[in-house]
Nucleic acid binder design. Structure first.
Lengths: 244, 244
DNA sequence: GAGTGGTCTAGACCACGAT
DNA sequence: TCGTGGTCTAGACCACTCA
């Protein structure tokens, strides 16, 4: 199994091991759910110490390719539905990173009880008070992003009194509210009439839509949908194989 | 600087160290660009071996929080403009995660010298041999994704002889080639005529476009553009703030 | 040249969890 | 119970790079 193949440039031992295992998984040679060799066996096979193998398997575990259980061993993880792990900061930071002046405006704001249609977005029972807010972000005075947000007021009651004079709803929440989990969805979508009007694009033109649900210990905090118009917006990411 | 605070029982030493350093960085106590202590100093400060500190700093480096240079030391990285950090495994795994049968086909394949137009995609000098390949991925026999890929043959010469009979180009590369960095761009785009025909959608309909450039130690390996048709495709991500 | 990070070793002890 | 992974050590050598 050790590759030691011809033409391999100078690679460290753990890189070689990792590449071998990753290849076996991605190629399907090691099926999801199947057990991979124990650390000791891999160490013997590669003629190295267990630490070196452990480093590789720990990385693969963090990367989500394998799952490890004490006493049981390590297993190829079933490809989870998550195809992406994503971090997003704040629209303001996003705009300023482009070197453009930023401002935003609140288009709509209402405190109301949650209705059934809210539940796929914000998992609260009907009747729970929510803050329903729409906001438009600008970069260099041009519409940059449309934000529709629901906030669970039973989890964050103090938001009801916030005027969002300087901080946008998203920035306010980030600064005040702890959260434990977030879930993102990214997709391409055609602009509907309302979004097209607000974003100054033609109806039906492609938009990048980012939806995020944020939880604190399984308690829903907020749901936000960000609509970025047209080809203009790119999300750029740079990362290394194992890093978070 | 060691926390050693009350109630920190359950955490391992390297978690404690990581948390301390991460805190100093995100709180702004350690400004971007400033140097952080050497491994030996941190080891002495925490009374542990250099390996333990090295593990933490390697993780932080992979996570993009710090930058490390031999002889010079480790430094707090300036927050980059990246709005997202993203991991994508492989289209095959993506499809199988949806519980759908997967297959792919090679639509076009050519070995040719790089031209100037390639340079924004793959940073190789003109004339360098590249493999230019187009491939269509299917989920449940319906077009799922269109892949246009350039591979730097001077970095990966063995790919020129690969038939991609069972492994798609992406899976093949992952299984064979080490990489140190990848850069992703995600955007919404209107399907052009060619893509629309191959993906069986109407021209101009919104598509999710993911572009990825992969490097091994600053040497370009491959550029790939994945076009996912319509509203159908979502990238879902779940993550926690700690960034593990 | 000298000092840093990058990697690796050959041990060790512990915690967890399957049996 | 007892084998596995999780963690840590106290060394070591090498490669890179700054001075």
């Amino acid at each position: 199994m050790p590759s030691e193949a011809s033409g391999d440039r100078k690679r460290s031992l753990h890189e070689t091991i990792r590449s071998d295992i990753e290849g076996s998984i991605v190629s399907g040679a090691w099926q999801p759910g199947s057990q991979i060799p124990f650390e000791q066996d891999l160490a013997a096979r590669y003629g190295c110490s267990r630490m070196t193998v452990n480093k590789v398997l720990t990385e693969l575990s963090r990367a989500g390719l394998i799952e490890r259980r004490r006493k049981a061993g390590s297993f190829v993880r079933r490809p989870s539905s998550q195809s992406a792990v994503l971090k997003i900061v704040d629209v303001r930071r996003e705009v300023e990173a482009l070197g453009l002046p930023y401002h935003f405006e609140i288009l709509r704001r209402a405190v109301r009880p949650a209705i059934k249609a809210d539940q796929p977005l914000l998992a609260v029972s009907a009747g729970t008070p929510v803050l329903d807010i729409t906001c438009r972000h600008f970069a260099a005075r041009r519409p940059f992003c449309l934000e529709d947000r629901l906030i669970n007021l039973s989890a964050v009651p103090e938001v009801a009194d916030e005027g969002f004079a300087t901080l946008s709803p998203g920035a306010f929440l980030v600064s005040r509210i702890p959260w434990s989990t977030a879930e993102h969805r990214i997709r391409a979508s055609a602009a509907d009439a309302a979004a097209a009007e607000v974003l100054l694009v033609a109806p039906g033109s492609p938009c990048l839509v980012v939806e995020r649900r944020t939880f604190d210990q399984d308690r829903p905090i907020t749901h936000v949908r960000l609509v970025y118009p047209g080809d203009g917006h790119e999300m750029v990411a740079r990362f290394a194989p194992t890093g978070g």
